[in-house]
Simulated assay, not measured.
Amino acid sequence: MFKLAMSTYRRRLGALGACLVVAGVSPLAASAQAQEYPAKPVRVIVGYSAGGAVDAVARTVGQAMQGSLGQPFVVENKPGAGTNIAVRAVIDAQADGYTLLMAANALAANMALYQPMPFDAEKDLVPVSLVGRVPVVIAANASAPFGTIKELIAAARAKPGSISFASPGNGSTPHMAVEFFKRAAGISLLHIPYRGGSPALTDVIGGQLPLVAVNALEVQPHVKSGRLKVLAVLSTSRSSVFPDVPTIAESGFPGFEASVWYGLVAPAATPKPVVAKLHAEVQKALQTKEVRDRMAAVGGEVLPGSADMFAALIRSERQRYEKLVREANIKPD
């Protein structure tokens, strides 16, 4: 009986030792994995068409990280379903750091817009790093009878619901921004959703509608050509591409802000050392002149900071959009 007991004890001790060895090796293995990462090209999925602001930011940051890490960062455009197709592709991808998403505000907004909820960003994804932000602008046809936000408010109050504004679509960040602004200003504007910023801009330039809400990058060439005029930049500070245009705060709404933000996220189970390495590389990229100049060229700014800051932003934006969607009864296209 003693021999049997000792034999059993040795087997259990051996099993325990094996568990201890595995437990001891796992952190080292994860660390080694992070040191070797990336050993092949990294996909950066974008839920928008090529040529837009999110695409431009993804390619700019990807180029900088490619130079630093020695592997291609390949941007893959997967537009559709308000970016839900792209988000789902990343959630379902292998959690090894080789599939990332360059996300924007829709990541937070879509959890409120779509029912049933298509994903839970706070559980299904892990924030890697904020990248930057570009302000939303409210612009008007060059011949519109108002040239400032104060004049627009006066016109809207004189004839409630008579002034239309175009946006890239129901639930888009510019649409949401104007909904927030309408409430702050106590005015009524008629929303006309389009499928993208380009057709919305085309109709406002053509005079079919007087107003459009888009990001600064999309409106910039049309302002330069004189076909549109920017009434206000919805950011806390003046835009580098529209230095003469007042911010919404300067127009009488202190504390109001509406920007398109960008950030990298990965599948939730991505190893922490890999996420940490990616975060450090993004921070390094944001310090380069090339990335800063590119962000400034599209009217934005870089946003260095911790992954916890990005997680807090997603959480707060989700709550803000949930309230707006409920109160304004906003439905996706």
Rank of each mutant, 00 (worst) to 15 (best):
V219A: 12
A213Q: 04
G171C: 03
A200F: 05
M176P: 00
S167Y: 00
V214Q: 03
A216Q: 08
A177Y: 01
H222I: 02
G169D: 11
S188E: 15
P174G: 01
P210N: 05
G169E: 06
H175F: 10
A232T: 14
Y194R: 05
R183C: 08
A177K: 03
F180S: 05
S235G: 14
I192Y: 12
F180C: 04
Y194P: 03
K182T: 12
A200G: 13
A185N: 01
G186F: 09
L209P: 12
P174D: 03
H175C: 10
A216R: 02
F165E: 00
G226W: 07
T236D: 14
S225A: 15
G197R: 01
K229N: 03
V212G: 02
K229Q: 06
L234Y: 07
R227P: 13
K229I: 04
T202Q: 14
G169H: 06
V204F: 04
L217D: 10
E218A: 15
G196K: 02
A184E: 10
V204M: 01
V233H: 00
E218H: 11
Q208W: 10
G186K: 06
A232F: 08
E218P: 02
L209W: 10
L209E: 13
S188H: 13
G207I: 12
F165N: 02
R183H: 15
I192W: 09
T173F: 07
R227T: 14
A213D: 01
P221R: 06
R227L: 10
I205D: 05
N215E: 15
V212T: 09
G207Q: 04
G206R: 11
H222K: 08
L234M: 15
G207W: 08
Q220S: 13
V223I: 10
S172P: 05
N170H: 14
S235E: 13
G186V: 07
L189Y: 09
P199E: 04
A177L: 12
K182S: 15
A166G: 11
S167Q: 08
S225K: 12
L201P: 05
E179N: 14
F180E: 08
A216C: 09
H222R: 11
V212K: 01
G169M: 07
V223D: 03
H191L: 04
P221L: 07
R227G: 15
S172R: 02
P193G: 10
I187A: 07
L228I: 04
F180W: 13
K224M: 11
K229M: 06
P174C: 06
R195M: 03
L190I: 07
H222P: 08
F181M: 15
E218G: 09
S237V: 14
L228N: 02
P168T: 11
V233I: 11
A177N: 08
S188K: 15
G197N: 07
P168G: 11
H175W: 07
Y194Q: 01
A184P: 13
A166P: 06
A166L: 06
G171R: 01
L231V: 12
A184L: 06
L231W: 01
S198W: 04
L231E: 07
T236N: 14
T202M: 13
Q208L: 14
A216W: 05
